[in-house]
Write a protein that binds this DNA or RNA. Structure first.
Length: 118
DNA sequence: ATAATGACTGGGG
DNA sequence: ACCCCAGCCATTA
């Protein structure tokens, strides 16, 4: 993987989120090495290649709610995609205690292994 | 090199 | 619990 950009790390991490689980922007930012770059994660997903097979719907905000109001992906679309995977919404909110993806540090390292050897 | 731009977040009121 | 706001930071729409 040549010159691992922050965006590429975010895309790779997003692809690793299992179906039926969700991750938050801040969570992925931290895994990518920038705990304070949550906003940049949203940008990374917004600018991901259209042909890439990335489960963008599995990334939501720290409140357990969908934050895609401002982009082409409508909230209903993201919610329906998640519900199709088994994620339950209650009052437009996902219970993070139940559905948040919680990989071990080792798993995260393995997911990003391709970037480390740069 | 600078400024602008968000699919954010945590804390305070 | 809810709303608001200042701080955040990689990338360049």
């Amino acid at each position: 993987m040549a010159h691992a950009s922050f965006f590429e790390k975010i895309w790779t991490l997003t692809r690793a989120i299992p179906p039926g689980r969700v991750a938050t922007y801040g969570q992925l930012a931290a895994y990518a090495g920038q705990p304070r770059a949550a906003r940049t994660v949203g940008w990374a997903l917004h600018s991901m290649p259209a042909d890439a097979d990335i489960p963008w719907q599995r990334v939501i905000n720290a409140r357990g709610q969908i934050s895609s109001r401002r982009c082409e992906h409508t909230v209903p679309l993201q919610q329906s995609r998640l519900e199709a995977e088994g994620v339950v919404f209650r009052n437009e909110t996902v219970d993070l205690d139940t559905f948040q993806w919680r990989p071990s540090m080792d798993e995260v390292d393995a997911i990003l292994a391709d970037f480390e050897s740069d």
